[in-house]
Design a protein around this nucleic acid. Structure first.
Lengths: 120, 120
DNA sequence: AAGGGTGCTATCTTTTTTGAAAGTATCTAT
DNA sequence: ATAGATACTTTCAAAAAAGATAGCACCCTT
């Protein structure tokens, strides 16, 4: 999960090491519009186990793409939001999403995250 | 390695399942400019073992991104080239490459494939 | 005091991906 | 006839990623 200190043969590889995790595009996409609590993300991405989700969130935080802020309320909540760096990857994600939506129809793809929002 | 019959939660995931392999971006990038023989690819991507390289080439062929043509010369050669479908992913790869090159400087990235060509 | 919500972590197992090494078949040049 | 090039495949092993399951600590409501 460590992103630092790796050697990449090309920037694409480096990019994939940051956003290539199983649920990372989904997390980034959901955070695109607004910050979300952990449980909201968990409900939006039910297939991810808590371990996976928190792992992906840690990775994204470690590489500076998301902020994690604990709000000391009655039941303390954690809120995740995109950093400027995280926002900068959105166009790339959109490009991947559009390509996927355009060229991969006919396969059994049930878009959950992208198409509805990227078609706006 | 089978891409068919999978269920994806979003088009980005589907896209990653096609180009997310270890050496797939590199292969596609090298084929961008011209068709290449197996051995040329092997020399351009020395880190890939023959097993890995031929595996990645099979995957890319199976999903329709590259053509494989055997030329029955004295020593038979195989030539790989991008299909129209394969070419259609290039802008996405370029976006990933540019983002990686722009935002990931300072990490120990030694660009091999992309920047030099995408800067043209 | 018992149960529910929030936000995780810890273990263990399975699956997937990648790697290392050697082998194979054919043809050609020396 | 031996070696080298082309284009891989096969086998075995290791590493990385993902999944299942359970647990924990805190607070609040009932």
């Amino acid at each position: 999960m460590k992103t630092r200190q790796k050697q990449f043969d090309c920037p694409v590889e480096a990019t994939l090491s940051l956003i290539g995790g199983k649920y990372k595009p989904l997390v980034l996409w959901h955070l695109k519009s607004q910050p979300l609590h952990y449980m909201e993300l968990q409900r939006l991405i039910p297939k991810a186990t808590p371990k996976m989700l928190s792992g992906q969130l840690h990775d994204l935080e470690d590489c500076g793409m998301i902020n994690r802020e604990v709000i000391p309320e009655k039941p303390p909540k954690t809120i995740y939001s995109l950093t400027a760096f995280g926002k900068s990857i959105i166009p790339v994600l959109t490009a991947m999403c559009d390509w996927g939506a355009t060229y991969l129809n006919g396969l059994d793809i049930q878009p959950v995250c992208c198409t509805s929002q990227s078609k706006k």
